[in-house]
Nucleic acid binder design. Structure first.
Lengths: 188, 188
DNA sequence: TTTCTTTATGTATATCTTGACATATAAAAC
DNA sequence: GTTTTATATGTCAAGATATACATAAAGAAA
């Protein structure tokens, strides 16, 4: 956890709410799609997290009655929440590599049948390549929609920067997978 | 968890024990240094994990009495454990990107002061560059000690492949950090 | 018309992970 | 001589995460 007992997921949520007020369900949707590429959480984490943030005075909610369905809770960030996330965002980011099962499998690849290992890494490489292409499509969309990246305003640049990381990550990963599978093939 | 209720940490441990019999403490040391770059665990996870693996028949131990100190438990992989890890290693690796706090901070960078954000990413880039250099030193050592990578036997190649991933990862990460910090600087 | 998906919000359980607590000796550094 | 580090093995509690359980209605698809 970061400052004042707020976890990284808490700050991710605050960051989303800093841009717009959202229901728990909307937070969940954003956690799945753009944010989910670098920080995932299911709704079973998000709803309790929002309650915890509210208990800590970081957000407040107002109920929007719905016909039949349960009330929609629209969460809004407080001044306290906004200053907390603003402080957190420029603090040193901790830990980057952490856990990567594929690298572990590469390290232990001598235990497997070379042909099977090669196939596994080839398939993994394809998956990362596809993900890279999806990111590149989004990047193309941004350029066509927002113009020259040089002139992006801060919020769009932030979006673009995260995407750029995704592209670089997937490209490097796919290359490595291809290299591993080729070497395993030629040796087996 | 993977097959037969063995977690990824369990397979990492089995993988180490497939190469040599080790005490829990030795596993801990390897989990810190070479394996720790892509899969970390403290001793408080390792000792119970070894007990669990033993309960599942994947490993066995014999006590080596020490003068004064508690008995050293040397763990040995069983035939069952070996076949389990051999099966696991060529199964598709799941999930790669998962959680990266720095990318999250980039995505929310519009909330921070540009100068401070730039400094944070500059420093982060330096850290990744240093890590890359450490990996490159190890790579140089491997080449000088083991000769041409082309002719590495399987176990050494596996070691080299994991290291290669580390180098690529850190290089790409450092480049991205530098790019982010430069853009933030020129805009602020 | 029936089934599936989306909207909408939660709880419960199990496991994973981290950090602290706990003990004990030998060897090396200061 | 005293302190710190390395060896050596554990437990415990708190927090994070994943998966399943649970409900309910609107709308789209079959």
């Amino acid at each position: 956890m970061g400052r004042a007992g707020v976890s990284t997921l808490g700050f991710a949520t605050l960051g989303l709410l800093a841009g717009e007020s959202l229901s728990g369900y909307d937070v969940k949707l954003r956690m799945a799609e753009p944010v989910g590429f670098f920080w995932q959480a299911g709704h079973s984490q998000i709803y309790p997290e929002l309650a915890k943030l509210e208990a800590g005075g970081m957000v407040v909610h107002n109920d929007v009655p719905q016909s039949g369905k349960p009330d929609k809770k629209i969460y809004e960030i407080t001044a306290e929440g906004l200053s907390a996330v603003k402080e957190w965002v420029s603090e040193p980011a901790k830990s980057a590599p952490t856990r990567d099962e594929a690298t572990l499998k590469a390290y232990l690849s001598w235990l497997g049948e070379p042909g099977e290992m090669a196939a596994m890494f080839r398939e993994l490489g394809r998956r990362h390549e596809k993900q890279m292409e999806r990111y590149l499509e989004t990047e193309a969309w941004m350029r066509s929609e927002w113009g020259e990246p040089k002139r992006f305003e801060r919020r769009r640049f932030a979006n673009y920067a995260a995407l750029k990381r995704g592209v670089g990550f997937e490209r490097e990963y796919a290359q490595w997978c291809r290299w591993v599978s080729e070497k395993l093939e030629s040796s087996g």
